[in-house]
């Protein structure tokens, strides 16, 4: 199967990048074809532009080469993997913007004859989130982990109830040591090889 791995962290030496690499290694070991999309390295613009907002309901919303390229990757993918640090209980703006701008009509959903929204990501078999948190798990649960909800519920609704969901989280990043970090990377690698 084909996997698309997205990374959203400004520092190319970040732990999020290491986790993405671990996922790539695992996916390749599992025999999948992997494409990596590093949003910061690609200079992806987070904000939907006024022209894009006007084009959004037009039926031809992909007016930017950046979003066209992303849409092609999404349409070809069977596994979507998101790697990011959780900031303010959600994803970094650049990843939120990627969803806002790429997951549009014709990619994430389409309208049927009665103008009802129908899922467009039926080809996606699994959605994976890999995130790091500064806070401990109890706090993350109390605040509701909104990035996780957005990917595991909202995005999943655009795929279908048969699409599997996987969430891999490393909590209390500020307090743990190198042992826990490398154990997490090993866990990501092992899991990814079974997807």
């Amino acid at each position: 199967m084909r996997a698309l791995v997205l990374v959203a962290h400004p520092d190319p030496h970040s732990f999020s990048h290491a986790a993405a690499q671990a996922a790539v290694d695992g996916l390749q070991a599992g025999g999948h074809e992997v494409t990596v999309l590093d949003l910061y390295a690609n200079g992806f613009d987070a904000a939907m532009s006024p022209a894009e907002r006007r084009a959004y309901p037009s039926g031809r919303p992909l007016i930017d080469p950046q979003t066209q390229a992303s849409a092609d990757l999404v349409r070809a993918a069977h596994i979507l993997v998101f790697c990011y640090p959780t900031w303010w209980s959600s994803m970094p703006a650049v990843l939120k913007g990627w969803l806002d701008r790429t997951m549009v009509e014709g990619v994430a959903f389409r309208f049927n004859e009665r103008r009802k929204i129908r899922p467009g990501l039926g080809h996606v078999r699994r959605i994976v989130g890999i995130s790091t948190y500064g806070s401990p798990k109890s706090y993350v649960k109390a605040i509701n982990d909104n990035g996780r909800r957005t990917l595991m519920r909202t995005l999943r609704m655009n795929a279908g109830w048969r699409t599997r969901r996987t969430w891999l989280a490393l909590y209390a990043m500020d307090r743990i040591g190198p042992v826990e970090r490398s154990a997490f990377l090993a866990r990501v690698r092992d899991q990814a090889s079974t997807w």
């Binding site: 703006a93 939120k96 969803l99 997951m103 909202t154």
Partner: peptide, 18 residues
């Protein structure tokens, strides 16, 4: 509300200002 949250522009405002 886009994709069940504030637009990326506003999420980025939280990321950068808070």
């Amino acid at each position: 509300t886009w994709f069940s949250g504030p637009p990326a522009m506003l999420k980025g405002w939280l990321d950068r200002v808070l």
